[in-house]
Simulated scan of single mutants.
Amino acid sequence: MENKKIWTKDFIVISVINFFLMLVMYLLIVTIAPFAAEEYGVSTSVAGLVSGIFIIGTLIARLAIGGFIEKVGSRKILLIGLTVTVLASVFYFGAVNLPLLMANRFFHGIGLGISSTATGTMVAQMLPPSRRGEGIGYFSLSSVLATAIGPFFGIYLSQHYEFTVLFMFCLALSVCCAAMYFFVEKAPEVTPKKNVRQTEEKRKSHDLLEKRALPIAFITLLAAMAYSGVLSFISFYADEINLVSAASFFFLVYAIAVLLSRPYTGRLLDIKGNNFVVYPSLLLFAGGLLLLSSAHAGWMLLLSGAVLGLGFGNFQSCAQAIALQGVKPERLGVATSTFFIFLDFGFGFGPYVLGLLVPVIGYQQLYVVLMFVVLAALALYMLFGRKRQKPAAN
């Protein structure tokens, strides 16, 4: 009989590990570019590259690691990822020049890509299929909290202490992740049956992406690209419209909206089906961008943050659950990797593409354009996503 319990000890430990991993990521994302500019006197564009090369490392790791999880097991892969993360955290202290710093950022991105893909796979493997949407919703709150807390602590530490203190804090968090790994008692691995192992390996040895996850992953790419415009340019936009004070609370409001709503939306996904959650989420996402584009008061800016949290914040976790629907248990690692590859691609390369538009159309019109990008994602979901109404039991 299926065990329908979500809040097991292993689930909680893996969620905390994921939270610390993401916390380190966001702590450094907002501080490493200023560090490079201050320490090495590089231009803003080069400093941005120091920050962005992390995403390239993450993408490469996700591309490669899905198949290895299928063969080796997610628990062993997590240990490898955490080891790389700890080493990268140590190497920041030895980054005495720009090439070494960039190499370590790339190396650190690989570590995060390996670790976070493994944690997502382990959670998917241990959750009962009938409650997977709800469980992933709870698990993904660890990333949401890191999104809100990481930038705040990163900016605070960089303003009040030397960067060495920031790197020590990141190292301490990474070591905590590695230590907590040994409290994960179970190894929720699923391997192909012996009588199909050889044919599966022949057919999928070069199959780095899960085909069933591709439609929702591509839709997620568009949504992530749209949200990257908020992440990257909200500070500049707030300065332009004289709402800097309100903008400091923007992501806090966003996180609160997600925290209050995501447990319900995950459960609704399991009970009512995909469309019941995805359609409202994408419509709210589009509406939040439209509200953001027309904000002229602090309350409007913060309200747009709340609406975006209800929209993109819930779509992201539900899309991850949808990417795993109907996927064979031994392919959950590849499906998880596929989803995050497209998500990271949207987050990582979106700012570069959108940055080319800003000088031409400005920030307000940019958010209007991004609203139409989200509506395009909704149209694609209507074409490709409606076939998968309910999760398929694995």
Rank of each mutant, 00 (worst) to 15 (best):
K194D: 15
G41V: 13
A255I: 11
G111N: 07
K328V: 04
A217E: 03
F339M: 07
L23K: 07
A392D: 13
V42N: 12
T83I: 05
I32E: 00
A335F: 03
I361N: 00
A295M: 08
I341H: 10
L302P: 11
G48P: 07
A393R: 12
S74H: 13
L209K: 00
V13E: 06
V144L: 12
M126Q: 14
G305V: 07
P280L: 06
S89T: 03
S158T: 06
E189M: 02
F167G: 08
P215I: 13
G348C: 09
T191E: 07
K328R: 10
I136H: 11
A172P: 09
L366C: 12
G73S: 13
I77M: 10
G287K: 02
V358N: 08
M225G: 15
G113L: 05
Y181D: 04
A64L: 15
F347R: 00
A295N: 10
V369K: 08
A118R: 07
I241P: 03
I322K: 01
A223N: 12
K9N: 09
L209H: 04
R75E: 09
D207I: 00
E39N: 15
G57I: 01
V13L: 09
A103V: 07
G67S: 15
L292Q: 13
G41C: 12
L301R: 05
L357V: 05
I32Y: 03
G109M: 10
A36K: 05
F93E: 06
L209V: 11
L259E: 03
Y279R: 02
L127I: 02
T121P: 10
G287A: 15
F349R: 03
C177L: 08
A335K: 14
S51F: 04
W7N: 13
P192S: 02
A286E: 05
L282F: 01
S130M: 05
G57E: 04
Y40D: 07
G350N: 12
S294P: 00
S317Y: 10
L59T: 02
E134Q: 12
P359D: 03
A321N: 10
I65Q: 01
T121K: 05
M168L: 15
L98M: 12
Q125G: 15
P188S: 11
I241S: 11
Q316T: 03
E201T: 10
S228K: 01
V96F: 11
L112Q: 08
L87R: 09
K272D: 07
G113N: 07
N394H: 12
G362I: 06
T220V: 13
K204G: 15
F169N: 05
L171I: 00
L208I: 11
A103P: 03
G109R: 05
P34G: 13
A223P: 01
G135H: 06
N394S: 13
S115K: 10
K211C: 08
P329Q: 15
G73P: 14
L98S: 09
N3L: 01
N104Y: 04
L166K: 08
I136D: 00
T336F: 03
L23M: 14
P192Y: 06
F93S: 05
E189R: 04
A323Q: 09
V86G: 14
I136S: 11
S74T: 12
I60A: 15
F20T: 07
L49K: 00
M22G: 13
N314L: 00
K5H: 14
S115R: 05
G109S: 13
T338C: 11
L284H: 04
M300V: 13
G346Q: 06
G309C: 08
K194C: 00
R386N: 09
A321R: 09
A238I: 11
S45E: 15
V196K: 03
L291T: 05
